[in-house]
C-alpha cells in the first residue's frame, strides 16, 4: 500500500476521478470531505498520509483548510488540486503549507507522480 489518502473536494465527480486514478496504483482512500471544515475534521480523525485538497470549496476554502491542518500537524502532506488560471492561489496554498499541486483536468501520470514524490520526500 503506497499511502492512506484523504480526498477533499466539494465535487463528487472530482473525488471519484482521483479515486479511480490512485486506487489501482496502490493508494488507499480512507476518507472524503466535501468542504474545508470537513477536511480539517477528517484529517484530525483519520490522520492520513496525504491529502488531496481542492482550492474552491464552500464553508472553508482549501487554502484556509491547509492553514488549519498544518497547525494540527506541521508535517502534513497536502497536494492542492487547482484549475488553470489559479496560479496565485496555488502560491498562496504553498505558502500556507501545502506540499505540491496538480492541475485539473487531471492527468493520471501527474496525479500519481505528484503523490509519490510528496510521500518520498516525507520519507527522506
Amino acid at each position: 500500500m503506497k499511502g492512506r489518502v484523504l480526498l477533499a473536494d466539494d465535487a463528487l465527480f472530482m473525488r471519484e476521478m482521483i479515486r479511480e486514478i490512485i486506487e489501482p496504483d496502490g493508494f488507499e482512500v480512507i476518507g472524503e470531505a466535501s468542504d474545508g471544515i470537513e477536511a480539517v475534521e477528517q484529517f484530525r480523525k483519520l490522520q492520513p498520509d496525504i491529502v488531496t485538497m481542492d482550492i474552491v470549496m464552500p464553508r472553508l476554502s482549501g487554502i484556509d483548510a491547509v492553514e488549519q491542518i498544518v497547525q494540527i500537524d506541521p508535517s502534513a502532506k497536502i497536494v492542492m488540486c487547482s484549475a488553470l488560471g489559479q496560479e496565485a492561489l496555488v502560491m498562496e496554498a504553498l505558502k500556507a503549507g501545502a506540499s505540491d499541486f496538480v492541475v485539473k483536468p487531471f492527468k493520471p501520470e501527474d496525479v500519481l507522480g505528484t503523490l509519490a514524490k510528496v510521500l518520498e520526500k516525507a520519507d527522506e
Binding site: 465535487a11 472530482m14 474552491v56 484549475a83 483536468p105
Partner: peptide
C-alpha cells in the same frame, strides 16, 4: 456572490474533464 462563483468554477472543472 461566493455561491455563483463556486458554481461556475465547479461546472468549468467538470466540463473540462
Amino acid at each position: 456572490i461566493e455561491a455563483v462563483f463556486r458554481a461556475a468554477h465547479s461546472i468549468k472543472s467538470m466540463a473540462a474533464s
